[in-house]
């Protein structure tokens, strides 16, 4: 009898806890953004940030930003959504404040948490001006009224409230702030690498819950979407593999490695649709920071 009481009390508490978690609001509502955006700069950020690479289905010849190729992970298959300004299928009805919350906090306009396949954790330090620029750039993309398919995520990972617990346990703040005594290119590289270009999303291993293991930052990962794997990109590992700053900057431009081979896997896509569009100065900044060299 006593045991039964205990069990039912525990079950009651658990249910209450679950209700609390489901009701628990995540993120915060950003202050209104009234800045004028520069669409050219926003497009540049959208290249650097991988928006265009990931949310366009290049293999199928899909229209820009109308939804990307599926990401097959051990948690299920994720379909990067349509980010065009379609009111029915994309972001056409969003406000810039909702956009800011989605990008910087990973929270949808209806308050749901995004899955961390969307690397919002890296975008948390984007300024209001960055957001306004991105928002202006997205306005220039032709609307496509076909929504991306729903994610195919089996139980229990389809329970989005679980992501609130995930956020509480695992959400690291990006370390993009400049470091005193380091050169401008190094600090610019840090802003890019730790933030918008989110190198760690693929080059840092993830734990059983799909969160990055920060103690093993940039040591490479072997369970990427599509059973892809990534090499280590710590300064030591890069140097050991013969990478110089020039070689690395050039590889980010061309996809060509020092031995004449070209990148495949996810990195081929990153270069083709992302870093090849950056300035030489930014590619050198990325290489400077990754190799931890002086400017």
């Amino acid at each position: 009898m006593r045991v039964l009481t205990l069990v039912s009390a525990a079950a009651g508490l658990a249910a209450l806890g679950l209700v609390a978690v489901i009701a628990w609001p995540v993120g915060s509502v950003p202050a209104p953004i009234e800045l004028t955006g520069d669409s050219q700069r926003g497009a540049y950020l959208a290249r650097a940030g991988g928006c265009i690479a990931c949310h366009t289905n290049w293999d199928e010849g899909g229209p820009p930003l109308a939804g990307g190729a599926p990401l097959e992970t051990r948690f299920g298959t994720f379909h990067p959504p349509n980010l065009t300004m379609s009111a029915s299928a994309g972001m056409g009805n969003w406000t810039i404040t909702q956009f800011a919350r989605a990008v910087r906090q990973g929270v949808s306009p209806d308050g749901a948490s995004y899955y961390p396949t969307f690397p919002y954790a890296f975008y948390a330090n984007l300024t209001d001006q960055d957001i306004a620029d991105l928002w202006a750039a997205f306005q220039t993309v032709p609307a496509v009224d076909t929504p991306a398919p729903d994610n195919e995520v089996p139980f229990p990972f389809d329970q989005r409230w679980g992501l609130k617990l995930w956020r509480a346990a695992f959400l690291p703040a990006p370390r993009t702030e400049p470091v005193e005594g380091k050169s401008d290119p190094w600090n610019q590289g840090r802003w890019l690498v730790e933030g918008v270009t989110h190198c760690g999303a693929c080059h840092t291993p993830r734990n059983i819950a799909g969160a990055r293991v920060m103690a093993q930052k940039f040591t490479g990962a072997d369970a990427l979407p599509g059973q892809d794997k990534s090499p280590a990109i710590t300064p030591d590992a890069l140097a050991e593999n013969g990478w110089t700053r020039d070689d690395l900057a050039y590889a980010l431009q061309s996809g060509i490695m020092p031995n004449g081979d070209t990148f495949g896997g996810g990195m081929g896509e990153v270069v083709r649709h992302g870093t090849s569009f950056l300035t030489d100065a930014d590619r050198r900044a990325i290489a400077t920071y990754l190799l931890d060299e002086d400017g």
Partner: peptide, 10 residues
């Protein structure tokens, strides 16, 4: 080189 990479990627 982009074509090499476009083929190696998938």
């Amino acid at each position: 080189s982009q074509t090499c990479s476009a083929c190696h990627t998938p």
